[in-house]
């Protein structure tokens, strides 16, 4: 099998916050009935995380689980473990109306690190980023592309977008993080 390569190969930018591409991150889209006990159990055994509530992201020892829509979850896991996890989920959900797909190589993940991380994300998105506390996930857009982001802590934001627009997202975040572009600092 060919080597998996992330969109920007871990590129980073040092502005008034640091923007870095996260390299290879495992991601699984899981669709199904989120109220189903079997699905909650399968998610728990795959990632160790409990079922997140509306607009939340939960953490477990093997990964994180984000609530994407009333019938969709995003599992953020180790890249190497994603294929096995999809197989385990598919097996556990055999009788359910559910689908798990490995989308690791269809996405790009960024971290925005610094005291002004919220400000930089807020510049490019219509969402109320200041109201977003750690543990909440917001699916919205950045400039012209769809993206989802959440705060890992008060000074670190993690942003997920499609791989095809990864370069656009990086250029956009770089531009928002240019020194001299500070709004409140």
């Amino acid at each position: 099998m060919s080597n998996a390569v992330s969109t920007l190969n871990g590129a980073s930018f040092e502005g008034y916050v640091r923007v870095e591409e996260q390299g290879l991150v495992g991601m699984i889209t899981l669709r199904g009935d989120l109220t189903s006990k079997a699905l909650a159990k399968a998610v728990k055994s795959a990632t160790g995380a409990a079922m997140p509530g509306q607009g939340e992201i939960a953490s477990g020892d093997k990964g994180r689980v984000g609530w994407m829509s009333p019938d969709e979850l995003l599992l953020i896991v180790d890249h190497a473990a994603a294929n096995d996890m999809v197989a385990a989920l598919t097996k556990a959900l055999a009788g359910e109306h559910a689908l798990a797909v490995n989308v690791s190589d269809a996405r790009t993940v960024f971290r925005i690190i610094g005291a002004a991380a919220r400000e930089v994300v807020a510049k490019v998105s219509p969402a109320d980023v200041n109201a977003l506390s750690p543990g909440q996930l917001r699916r919205t857009r950045i400039a012209q592309i769809p993206a989802a982001f959440h705060m890992i802590d008060e000074e670190t934001a993690e942003l997920v977008c499609f791989r095809s627009v990864g370069k656009y997202a990086f250029d956009l975040l770089k531009d928002a993080a240019l020194p001299g572009g500070e709004v409140y600092l």
């Binding site: 509306q54 607009g55 829509s69 009333p70 969402a127 919205t140 857009r141």
Partner: peptide
């Protein structure tokens, strides 16, 4: 009504 998100019209 599905997300509980206050979305502006560009979303």
């Amino acid at each position: 009504p599905y997300c509980g998100v206050m979305a502006d019209e560009t979303d």
